[in-house]
Every structure is written in C-alpha cells, then in structure tokens.
Design a protein around this nucleic acid. Structure first.
Lengths: 97, 97
DNA sequence: GTAAAGTAGTTTATAAAATAAACTTGTTAT
DNA sequence: ATAACAAGTTTATTTTATAAACTACTTTAC
C-alpha cells in the first residue's frame, strides 16, 4: 500500500540539502547553511550522514586562507532521491507542475 | 527557500494514516493497522498525537461486543495535509500524474 | 463453568534521531 | 599581542519513533 520512505532522506534538513545539491551540483558549507537556515553544528552532522551513505561527496578545500567545504551530490544520491520521491507518491497524489 | 515541513505530518506512519483517512474518510483501528503495517502500540500513540492536534477525530464504538476505534479526518486535518504537500513542493519538483 | 487462547487497544520503556550549545582552529582587524 | 570573527566539529540534550509488556474483555475448548 505505502512504499517505505528512506529514513536518511525523510528528514527536513537532509532533504533540503539534497534538493539544493540536485539543483546546483556543487555548493559549499556556508552557502548550504544560509539556504537551509540550519545551524552549523546540525549541518555538519547531517552532511556527514549523507556523505557516509554515499549520497554526497565532500571535499575540503580553501577559499583563500579560509577553509571551504565543498559538497556535491553523487549518482547514488540522485538515484536515492528519485526513489524517495517515487515512494512519496504512494502517500500523496501530486497533480500540476 | 524551503518551506517548513509540519513535523506532525512529516512522519512515515502518521503520513500514512492521514493519507489513508483522506481516501476513505472513516476507518477503524484494525484496518489502519493492516494497511499501514504498523504495530498496535505504535499506531495507538500516533493516532493519539493526530487526535490531540485536531487532525483526526476518534470515536470509540463497538462492533458487536468487540471494541472498535473509528477514525475520521477533520477539516483541519485535510487543510494541514494540503499545506504539507505544498511545502513538500519547495523541496521536490513533481511532474506527471 | 473455568482455563486457554485470542482480539483490541494502551502504557511504558528503549533506542534512535534531530538539534543546539560548547568547543577548536585558524584569521583578520586593532 | 589581543580581541573579535569565521568555518567547522564534537558533545550533550531533548525529542521522537517504536516495540515490548501489559490490561481488559471475548470466544473457544474441555
């Protein structure tokens, strides 16, 4: 009846991160924090989870002398997101758009 | 950027319950348990939360001699669900259907 | 009739998760 | 040098989901 919702994606912040990364393909820590409104601590933890799951890749670089954490969605991430959306459709009937 | 996802609805089981009640308009405890695959304990707790939020109404009746807990979505529930779906669209681009 | 097994549901205890507060490391401005 | 700031991380706290254990009642078997 209802498809299982991947618990890693069924989280407001992680869903926002993934949604963002889907649209821009690469974003740094500060940008993600600003766009999602998350606290740095929370963001750090959630990025770590997504990274460990293989849904995103994290590269630590520098922007000038300041550290800069770059994030990028992986093909597995894109796939998992697609499946999540598909599962959502068993709960919700989307029309329009 | 991203709309807030009502935490009461952003839960796999509660979303399933609400989705179910939207389609049938009235369902009893056992039916909901079967359709969602939830354990009785978990279902009891989540129905209570939805009821306390005013999203569903619970009526305790009898089916013959056996107790029967009837659930029905309220207008506020319908409305909250609609807003939840709307918020989801800020995270996800739904096409088709 | 009474013991055993089953049904419907609740309460309570546990495990997992989200989140923020506190901290670390380095940098820029005074 | 010292103070204030930026980018993150680690740790601690609170919340939440979930299942296990329980209650109350009913039916079935002896």
């Amino acid at each position: 009846m209802f498809k299982e919702l991947n618990p890693l994606l069924h989280s407001e912040l992680r869903l926002g991160i993934m949604s963002l990364l889907l649209s821009v393909e690469t974003a740094d820590f500060v940008y993600i924090r600003e766009q999602t409104g998350a606290t740095a601590g929370n963001l750090s933890v959630q990025l770590d989870k997504l990274s460990k799951a293989g849904y995103i890749e994290i590269e630590k670089t520098y922007k000038g002398k300041a550290p800069c954490t770059l994030c990028k969605i992986t093909p597995e991430g894109v796939n998992a997101f697609g499946q999540y959306v598909d599962a959502l459709k068993s709960y919700i009937h989307f029309k329009d758009e």
